[in-house]
Design a protein around this nucleic acid. Sequence first.
DNA 1: AAAAATTTTCAATAATTCTTAAGAGCAAGG
DNA 2: CCTTGCTCTTAAGAATTATTGAAAATTTTT
Lengths: 229, 229
Amino acid sequence: MKKILLVDDEPDIVEFLKYNLEQQNFEVIVGHNGEEALQRLDEKPDLILLDIMMPKLDGFETCKRIREIKEFENVPIVFLTAKAGEIDEIKGLELGASDYIQKPISPNKLIARVKSNLRKAESSNLRKSGPIKVKYGPIDINKEKYEVFIDGEKKVFPRKEFEVLYFLANNPGRVFGREILLKEVWGADVYVVDRTVDVHVRKIREKLDKHADLIETVKGVGYRLKSVD
Amino acid sequence: MKKILLVDDEPDIVEFLKYNLEQQNFEVIVGHNGEEALQRLDEKPDLILLDIMMPKLDGFETCKRIREIKEFENVPIVFLTAKAGEIDEIKGLELGASDYIQKPISPNKLIARVKSNLRKAESSNLRKSGPIKVKYGPIDINKEKYEVFIDGEKKVFPRKEFEVLYFLANNPGRVFGREILLKEVWGADVYVVDRTVDVHVRKIREKLDKHADLIETVKGVGYRLKSVD
DNA sequence: AAAAATTTTCAATAATTCTTAAGAGCAAGG
DNA sequence: CCTTGCTCTTAAGAATTATTGAAAATTTTT
C-alpha cells in the first residue's frame, strides 16, 4: 500500500482529497503547511501532493527543501495549483516538480495523476544503471533486451534470476552474502527469507548447465562468480 | 557506466566535481581548457561539463566546435557558470547548450542535473523520428502512408496500434516497460492506466495472426519484438 | 445527430514467478 | 561415528503479473 503526503492549508480540500485517495486504498498523511510537510517526511511517503499557497513555508520553497534530502530526491512531488500563472512558475523554476494538477481537482484526474506518477517513479527506480551488455566467460547478458546466452544459446531468465545473475556478473569474483544480495537485487525495503536466494541460485545453476560451477558457494558467507579462467 | 568529460581550469573545482561524480559511479575524464576538451572527445563522453572562462579556448567557442562534429551533436553539454550574466549569454548565443549550473555548485544539484540531462538525451535518442519504411521479419511498415503489411497482406492499424508497433519495430529485441511505452508513444503528459498498453498489444497480436508471438511478453518487465535468429 | 470506429477501463481468469518450509546432503570437529 | 552447522533440493501454495472479454468513454466519420 502506497503512502501519500498531502499538504494543503484548506481543511475542506484536504478532507475531499483525503477521502478520494483513501477510497483507492492509499494511506494518506496530512500536513497543513510547509513546515509540517517537512516533519511528516520521516514517515517516508511514496508521493507528495503539495499546495503552493500556504502559510509559514510555501510550496515552492518546501519542494526545494525536500529535494535537497537525498532520500527524497526521486519521490514524485505533484503540485496543486489554483492559478494558471503558477504553472508557468513551476515550469520556469527548476525545483524538481514531477507534475501539477490545476484546481478545481476532479477525483478521477487526481487518482490518474497520482497513480501515473507513482508508476513513473517506480520504473525509474528499477532502471538503476549498469552496463547494457555484460560478458563473463560463456555467459552473455544484455540488459536492454533482457536476454541471457549461455555458450551462445538463448535461455529464459525470469526477472529475479536475471537480476541476480546480472548483479553477480557485474562484480565477478566478489562474494556476496545473502543479505547483501537481497538488498541489492530485491531492494532495501523488501523482506523475504534469506534462503530464497538459494533457490534462485539453484535455478540459475540449472540454466548454466555444465557451467553450473561458475557460481561458487562460500560456506557461511555467500555466493560469488568464479574468478576468471 | 556513463562517461563524463569535465572541463575546467581551476584544479580545486575539478577535484571537487570529479570526486562527487565518481562517488555516483560516473567515469570522469578531465580537460583543463577548450583545446584539451576537444582532444578528449575521442574517448566518447556521454555528457560534457564545460566551464566558460578558460584560457586558450573559452567554453562558448568549445561548445560550438563540439556541436560541429556530427557524432556529438546530441551529447548533452552543461555549462558551469560563475556569473549570472553568463546565463543570459548562453541563452542568447544559441550554441547548443543543454543546461547550465550556476556556481557555487552543490554536489546534490550537480548530480541531479547530470542525471537528468543524461536521461533526456537517452530518451531523445529513442524518439528520433524514425525511418519511413521499416521491415521486420514478415512485417512491413510504411510510416508515411500509415500502412502495415503482414506477409505482404495489408492490414488496418489504427493510430495507437500503429505507433506501438512502429516503435517496437524500430528497436527490435529491446524490452520496453509499459511506462516507457506510454511515455514514448502516448507522450509524457497523457495519463492512462498502464494496462492500456496490454490491450493494444493484444490487438496488434491479433493482426499479426500466426506471427503473434513476434511480440514477446517479459513478465514483470514489459514487451519486446522477438530477436531474429 | 447518429453511427462507426477507436481508445480506455474494469473485472474475472489464466499463467507464471516467487517464496516458503521441510527434509536430504555434506563437510568439519569433536 | 555422531553432532553441528550450513547448503541444496523439492514441491506446494502465495503472490504477482498478464490475458481476456465486455462494456464505457471518447473520437471520428457519415
